[in-house]
Design a protein around this nucleic acid. Structure first.
Lengths: 205, 205
DNA sequence: CCCTGCCTATGACCGTCGTCATAGTAGCGG
DNA sequence: CCGCTACTATGACGACGGTCATAGGCAGGG
């Protein structure tokens, strides 16, 4: 995992996101972040004068941007874009990781929400913004596929909720079962929302 | 909130669950649990010689039992039980709490998973067991409503995943929107799974 | 009265954590 | 060489946190 390239500041934000998604916010130390980023400890107070809260907030923001941007890439990878296909790709990112690298990490935004929603208002807001960005990207993708405007955002919320929950179950059970289940169960529902006059089932195996 | 009645041991487990679901596992201290339970600090090492890990595991187990038992109560409250109706009730428990008491707490099992899945194997196992118990209760309820046996568990997993994810979104956004959305979007899909005479879209894996 | 369990009471230990204070280095325009 | 800015280096501080050690109360039975 080449942490090189890009400035130390960016590396620290990235490392923070990685550690948070693995251990949670509270269990992730500042010194640990610096070490993981191969950045000098002294740079912490220089780049993040707002302390841990600022670092966590930026990590959450980074994760939101990453998730949002990823949607466009999923779309580009699909030969024939359908809502169910997009969801399957989103889920597959996680099953792939879990099967190849183990169940070590979850979603950093979820971790920030669980650990800080009640104690750090700015972090809660950052998590909200991250989810919004992600939801917006998915909703826009759904619209582009022909999902009626008023159905796009609710379905995007459903997709992200199911995915987040399935990630939790998968980590707890050390089994991708929940992830594959939500993908399979939700696929037809999502595809049925495209407002073409006739067809319903474009799902893939 | 009468913490009295029941022994101090049980009170501490209950308090642990409450604090964990609010602040996360790492941010919840043992001394804090004892104080919240109005139990003597000295009792901690007496009742939980396994330390914090044991206490957390028991809190998670309690939450799993609570969630599972709750399903039966939801069923009893429904005049005409349907899968969508059950899900709506499960969701409503959370919207009610959030609207009346604020967005202070999430699911303790989710918190334990996020904070400990990678660091405490026994806690991860406890979370897995809690989710299994909950999923099992829901799946059984679905079966009783006429959902085909092979569809009951996948749908239960979908329900719980969506609910857990929506809880996360709701806490982050301080808005029950995600919860009401998943309830509304998933309701028809769930109701369609009851095996009345011959409906068509039963995709079996 | 004492012994024996259960339970409770505290103080101490040791580690970690976030943060701060202070000082150092590197590059650069002048 | 100077001064200035950007960045790094490190030790210390104060606050907890989990756990342990040790001792106190307090039934009930002998």
């Amino acid at each position: 995992m080449a942490v090189s390239e890009r400035g130390p500041r960016e590396r620290m934000v990235f490392s923070a996101a990685q550690l948070i998604r693995r251990d949670g916010v509270a269990a992730t130390g500042m010194r640990e972040v610096a070490a993981h980023a191969e950045a000098p400890r002294g740079s912490l107070q220089h780049y993040f004068p707002g302390g841990k809260e600022q670092l966590v907030n930026e990590a959450v923001g980074w994760a939101g941007r990453y998730a949002g941007d990823r949607v466009a890439r999923f779309l580009a990878a699909l030969p024939q874009p359908t809502p169910g296909g997009l969801f399957a790709e989103m889920v597959r990112q996680w099953t792939d990781e879990y099967e190849s690298a183990g169940f070590g990490g979850g979603c950093p935004v979820a971790a920030a929400t669980v650990d800080r929603a009640g104690s750090a208002e700015s972090t809660r807001a950052a998590a909200s913004a991250a989810f919004d960005r992600w939801t917006g990207a998915v909703a826009r993708a759904l619209s582009d596929m022909g999902v009626p405007a008023e159905r796009a955002e609710p379905l995007a919320t459903l997709m992200i909720s199911s995915l987040e929950g399935a990630i939790l179950l998968a980590r707890a059970e050390r089994d991708v079962r929940a992830l594959t289940t939500v993908s399979r169960e939700l696929g037809p529902l999502l595809d049925a929302a495209v407002s073409s006059t006739d067809f319903g089932q474009v799902a893939e195996g």
